[in-house]
Simulated scan of single mutants.
Amino acid sequence: MIVRPRPSLLQLFFIVRGSIVLRILPQIIVIFLLSLAIVAGHEERPGVILSLNSGPFALLGIALSIFLGFRNNACYDRWWEARKDWGQLIFIARGFARQTLLLETSGEAGIAARQGLLRLTIAFSHALVCHLRPGGNDDKVARHLDEGTFGLYRAARNPPDLLLRLMSADLARLKADNRISDIQYQLLDASVGQIGAVQAACERIRSTPLPFGYTLLLHRTAYLFCFLLPFGFVDSLGWGTPFVTALVAYTFFGLDALGDELEDPFGNQLNALPIGALADTIEINLREAMGETDLPPLPQPKDFILM
């Protein structure tokens, strides 16, 4: 995710990183060169390279802008919902750390049980990052699991869910050993269930993209509009047509590309959510709750990028 202060008016026109420009630059260049060729051909052979009425382009441009705006709103809703889910995960993890304080009343065994549960919670947050983000590294998960548990983790079809099952199994053993009461068990197990609900919500977002037909329609319409636009303005704008069409292409293709990035909030794009940094935040909070003092600083953006 891009984290930077609001740029000044001068900086506004020179910011490249995170501006989508590099991603859509090939399309803009193609539209510019095509417009240049159409203007040159119209100047040389106006009977062959015809101009079109610009009126329909204005109407189509308005309709396309509305549809692109609707799609981007839908993509942003996915992005924001994913951010709320991870905010909820942080909230539940912190609450779970407070709830497990009741285990420390059982002496050393209770303290060890609490630390085991919180280690599993930390491992879960990092495992969820690997589960949602392709190519994730599970080294951070391994740091909080013993060798046997990590072996089970690597063999599981759904590693984060395995860790939740292990947490529930630990709670069941504590109840069977009479270290926690029925009410305490229900309280702690409810928090594990809430963590599982967050995972299910994130999996729903990841596995359910926007309808392909709708996205395909917008892609086709945007490309056709930009390809035909020079024919509508070649008479009125002349040699200024390539610059105007390139600006229009930047707007439409930029909105389209930004929607693609927001549609996948757990990806590796610059505008994706910093779920790795959020998992690190959970780790720092829970390790502090366990009494550790040698903690790393909270995640900070590097070159205005927080991942």
Rank of each mutant, 00 (worst) to 15 (best):
T105K: 12
G55L: 15
S236C: 00
G107K: 01
I275V: 09
N53A: 14
N178F: 15
L9H: 03
G240N: 12
H144Y: 10
F14A: 15
A200F: 03
G95S: 01
N271L: 13
H144T: 07
L174P: 10
P230T: 05
L52P: 04
I122K: 04
F57G: 01
L162R: 11
L9V: 12
S191C: 08
L60R: 09
L145G: 04
L262I: 06
G291Y: 07
D161Y: 08
A113T: 02
Q88T: 15
A93Y: 03
S125C: 14
F57T: 10
V30H: 06
P299H: 06
I111H: 06
I49W: 15
V16P: 05
L229V: 10
N137F: 11
F70L: 15
T221N: 04
F70Y: 14
V16T: 12
K140Y: 13
S191V: 05
I24F: 04
L36Y: 12
M167D: 01
G107A: 00
G116R: 14
F233D: 00
L164N: 14
T245Q: 04
G151H: 03
L163M: 06
S168R: 13
L12C: 06
A169I: 08
D182L: 09
V16W: 00
G41E: 00
E147K: 15
E283L: 06
Q194W: 07
N53K: 13
G259Y: 00
S19M: 01
A200S: 15
N137C: 07
G116H: 13
L64C: 10
G95M: 02
L188N: 04
Q184G: 02
Q194Y: 09
R157T: 14
C202G: 04
R6W: 09
L298W: 08
L162D: 11
L188V: 10
L164S: 07
A277R: 00
L9W: 07
R78M: 06
L89C: 06
G55S: 15
L298D: 03
G136I: 11
R78V: 02
L171K: 02
G291I: 10
L217S: 12
L164Q: 11
G291D: 02
L171N: 11
P211R: 12
D161C: 05
F233Q: 07
A123E: 11
N271Q: 13
A82K: 03
T105V: 15
G55R: 13
R220D: 08
P26S: 00
A197R: 05
I305Q: 06
A40C: 12
L162N: 03
L89H: 09
I28L: 11
L166K: 10
P242V: 03
I29F: 00
I284W: 01
R78L: 07
R71H: 02
G116F: 05
F32L: 02
Y185C: 05
S35D: 03
G238L: 01
I15N: 08
A156L: 03
N271Y: 06
R114T: 09
A155S: 07
G291H: 05
V129I: 05
G18S: 08
L132M: 10
A172C: 08
Y214C: 07
L166M: 08
G240E: 01
A74V: 10
L164V: 08
F14Y: 09
I29E: 00
K175G: 14
L10F: 14
Q269H: 06
V192C: 03
E261D: 11
